[in-house]
């Protein structure tokens, strides 16, 4: 999949967004002259878009992500709650075409207490693949199961494939309800001891 396309707001639009943000309770302060606001559409929402607010006057730059319908701005805080809340409000529309973008968005913005879940679409394009030793690389390629999507009788979407979590490469089925809530089933450990290096700052895992 190509990198998502972000649209940059002009100065006047940026100020309007920053004014709206600063009116919110407990809003994070952004300096007006050194902040860029970009947005992109998410294929599973109609009314809400993803906003990225970046302050360039810090090193490294400071960014916050929000879901917004241009009236309210809901900060993505690493927990699933803001996403589940927008799933109800918009409401979310999931199908076999947009389910993978939803999972990518979800796992890019929700971070667990024991690390992140990575959905592996193509082992050859996995970030950090080069940090693994040749035997580990080959094991991943050999054991990789491509993603498959199907709908069940309860209107849930089932995504089967290979995930990375907690140092393990796991084959599992992710069951996603029509409301976008999810749980893992039929987990099978393919490989353990796969640790990716941690960055002291941040890692852009899926999004450009």
């Amino acid at each position: 999949m190509a990198s998502p396309i972000w649209t940059r707001l002009d100065r006047e639009q940026t100020y309007r967004v920053l004014d709206q943000l600063s009116a919110q309770r407990d809003a994070v302060v952004f300096s007006r002259d050194v902040t860029e606001v970009t947005w992109r559409q998410l294929p599973f929402y109609i009314n809400y878009r993803l906003y990225r607010v970046t302050n360039y006057a810090t090193m490294p730059t400071f960014s916050m992500m929000y879901l917004s319908n241009e009236e309210e701005y809901i900060a993505l805080d690493s927990t699933p709650d803001p996403i589940y809340s927008v799933n109800e409000k918009d409401p979310i529309r999931l199908n076999e075409v947009n389910i993978i973008p939803y999972l990518e968005f979800f796992f890019n913005n929700v971070h667990g207490s024991d690390g992140d879940v990575h959905l592996i679409k193509d082992p050859h394009k996995m970030p950090f693949m080069s940090s693994l030793n040749p035997a580990q690389r080959q094991s991943i390629i050999n054991r990789f199961k491509p993603l498959t999507v199907s709908a069940d009788s309860l209107h849930n979407l089932d995504v089967s494939g290979t995930f990375h979590y907690g140092g393990g490469l796991i084959m599992a089925t992710l069951v996603i309800t029509p409301q976008g809530k999810m749980s893992f089933q039929d987990q099978n450990l393919l490989l353990s001891g796969i640790r990716f290096p941690a960055s002291p700052y941040s890692q852009a895992w899926l999004e450009g």
Binding site: V28, V29, H111, G112
Partner: peptide, 27 residues
């Protein structure tokens, strides 16, 4: 000094008298 939720540990100084520390509330 304020605390905010951020995906990764981060500090942020938007104004000279206002500092933020951001971290993942889950981790």
């Amino acid at each position: 000094i304020k605390i905010t939720a951020a995906p990764q540990p981060v500090t942020y100084l938007p104004e000279k008298k206002l500092v933020y520390i951001g971290f993942n509330r889950n981790n």
